[in-house]
Simulated assay, not measured.
Amino acid sequence: MQTYMFPIKIAFITFPFLAFFITFPFVIYQYRKYSYINIFRNLILYSFLLYLIVAYYLIILPLPQTTDVRSLQSDGTKYYQLIPFNFIFDFLKETNVIFAKPSTYINILKERSFLQAAFNGILLTPLGIYLRYYFRKDLKSTLLISFSVSLFFEITQITGLYGIYNAPYRLFDVDDLILNTFGGYIGYLIAPIFTFFLPKSNKLDDDIDLENLNVSYFRRFLAFLIDWFILGFIPNIENNILLENIVIFIYFICIVYFTNGKTLGKYIVKIKIKGKNKRLLFKEVFIRYGILYYCVFGVNKILFKTIDINKTEFVNYIIIVMFIVIIINLLIFLHVLLCVFKKDSELFYEKISKTRNVIETSKKN
């Protein structure tokens, strides 16, 4: 049992790091496909990711301590087993069960050959459940995918983790293909038992009104990060105030006006700026982003620049400027914090410009 617990423990340790690594592309995919984030769908998909990590670690861990595994193996080491259902003969050869005595049947739960066959049968059973419930695959597709995943596992083993090791450190076994695929089949059959109380996966979005759904601050921040990541490729933009202001005017004001509310970042996460009318006015865009970038960010930049230029002189003056910077940013921070925790609230520059973020619903996926 310890042999199986070690890979599971490592999977739970590495899962948060892998989940964090894929979060941004995963969230963008969700926004592009569904136009919003469904918490239940996320739980299902992240649990599926965790399952895949556990399954993969179970077939590769523990790793050998050296890449030269061939030197640790005896001559004639067998790397593959191609006789179907050989696990039955292994069980009959090794078992201490006396079939005429039912009282000995309990011993089967302690025997290596049975546990190994049971493990290979159970390994892809959850996959069958996921495929039928969430991905809505039929039996034929489930069997094909289960077999393909099992074949991937066996190829991983026979290639010594794709050449990392100079020889296989686990056996390629055709019985594993049979048992893994059978496990996927069992998972498909029992899926309704495990998912009876869960909402149907094809109805998760039925009651969602995208037109009246609030745009989360996380979604807005993600669009902001994408926009400034793109602008970061413009040479010398951070050190040239004039260039930065021109870029801001073109990108956040002119482009948003001509696209009726979208930057590239907003387009990627499927949101846009909306004014009082169906068509966004130039005045609305100019006020919105003028306040945000030229006033808020601009004033901050000027004050910090003032501090940097005069840091060796006028000590009292610098203290006053620093105090002003702290007060301004503290007030803005508190305002944003209140808006984040209070639903249907607007940031100050949105109220002044009479604009807001809405979900882009013009294109159906």
Rank of each mutant, 00 (worst) to 15 (best):
E238T: 12
R288M: 02
Y267E: 06
F258S: 09
Y289W: 04
L281V: 06
K262H: 03
K278V: 11
K272T: 01
K278W: 13
G298V: 06
F249A: 13
Y251L: 02
I246Y: 03
G275C: 01
T263Q: 00
K270H: 12
I273F: 00
N300M: 02
F258W: 12
L281W: 05
N245Q: 09
I241R: 11
I250L: 15
D308K: 15
N240C: 11
I250F: 09
I287G: 02
F282N: 13
I255S: 06
G298C: 07
G265D: 00
Y251G: 04
N240T: 10
N245D: 04
I291T: 08
Y257D: 05
C254Q: 03
K272V: 02
R279P: 14
R279Q: 11
K272E: 04
V285F: 02
I309Q: 15
Y293A: 01
G275A: 05
L242M: 10
Y251S: 01
N236L: 13
I253E: 00
I291F: 11
V269F: 08
F233Y: 15
L280M: 13
G290W: 03
F297S: 03
I291A: 09
F233G: 15
I302N: 04
I253Q: 00
I255T: 12
I248E: 01
K305R: 15
E244A: 11
I307W: 10
N300W: 05
E244T: 08
I307L: 13
I246R: 04
D308G: 08
F282A: 15
K270C: 03
I248Y: 06
R279H: 15
V247K: 08
K262G: 01
D308N: 11
K270N: 06
K301T: 06
F258P: 01
I241K: 12
I237F: 14
V296A: 06
V296C: 08
K283S: 14
Y251F: 08
I268E: 11
F297D: 05
F258T: 07
F249Y: 13
N260T: 06
I273D: 00
